[in-house]
Design a protein around this nucleic acid. Structure first.
Ligand code: FES
Ligand code: FES
Lengths: 134, 134
DNA sequence: CTTATATGTTACTAATATAGTAGCATTTGT
DNA sequence: ACAAATGCTACTATATTAGTAACATATAAG
């Protein structure tokens, strides 16, 4: 069971690096030399981040990426939602109607409690904070 | 992102039903008529529960399953571990060495906090408690 | 003792999610 | 014109989860 998949993981680390180089554009080539992630994988991830307006990109030679908004305004929950979808730990309750009677499902309340906690924690952590702890 | 997969879900509901019929053996046929889960799927799930000593089985006509231990001694974490493996929300840290430097991984502490909470919650909830709330 | 009915066991297929790659188009500084 | 960067999309591969099938074995009932 994973909370963070590789897309999200890759995104966090790339964004942290970019946040630490505010004055320069950061290219996938640089990130590739920095982390042990293939260039293609980085490109895929960063491209998504750009379409989701987490990053801004500049094309052409000397191009690269920079943050589209302050590091304090990017939280883990944003990235998890982009790459892994909405946090629905209680997915089983609804998807394909596994449970006949959702209302009587005994697991439901418990799982929803856990879900609320996870989301609140992921919301609370921003890139800015992670950068400080780094 | 799911916390509970269908095996676990099926197990919880079956065990709850079995716990509510302490005096009788419960067969997959009965559970199948009770829940909207195929007989084959139930068999697979219950068989695992039997090998893991959560249930005891009796073969032959009029056979079926009963709890192998008190409902208060079966918690959600047991079932999650059986069907979904150990809770390692921070799996990404180690599996196939995604991170080059685990020690400097900024996500690690946050995810581990969340993981501890989830495990403690899953440990706290027993079948006995779920049965009461039912 | 035969039979119906239950689980034991294993192997298999199908569907879905995640991970990873490839290739061409477009932009831009030199 | 060219090199080097992203834009974009389609594709393959792998792992996980979901679901099915078939045969072996045990047991109570007639
Ligand atoms: S629907 Fe999954 S536990 Fe009820
Ligand atoms: S290894 Fe996954 S966040 Fe560092």
């Amino acid at each position: 069971m994973k909370l963070i998949n590789k897309d999200t993981d890759c995104a966090v680390r790339a964004i942290l690096y970019i946040a630490g180089n505010e004055n320069n554009l950061v290219s996938t080539a640089v990130l590739n030399s920095e982390f042990n992630i293939s260039r293609q994988f980085l490109r895929k991830t960063l491209h998504v981040l750009q379409t989701k307006k987490i990053l801004k990109s500049v094309k052409g030679i000397n191009g690269g990426f920079r943050l589209a908004r302050p590091a304090g305004k990017i939280s883990l929950i944003d990235l998890v939602r982009i790459f892994q979808g909405e946090v629905n730990l209680n997915k089983c309750f609804f998807k394909k109607k596994i449970c006949v009677n959702v209302k009587t499902c005994p697991l439901r309340r418990e799982v929803e409690n856990i879900e609320r906690y996870v989301v609140s924690r992921l919301k609370a952590v921003t890139i800015e904070q992670l950068a400080k702890k780094h």
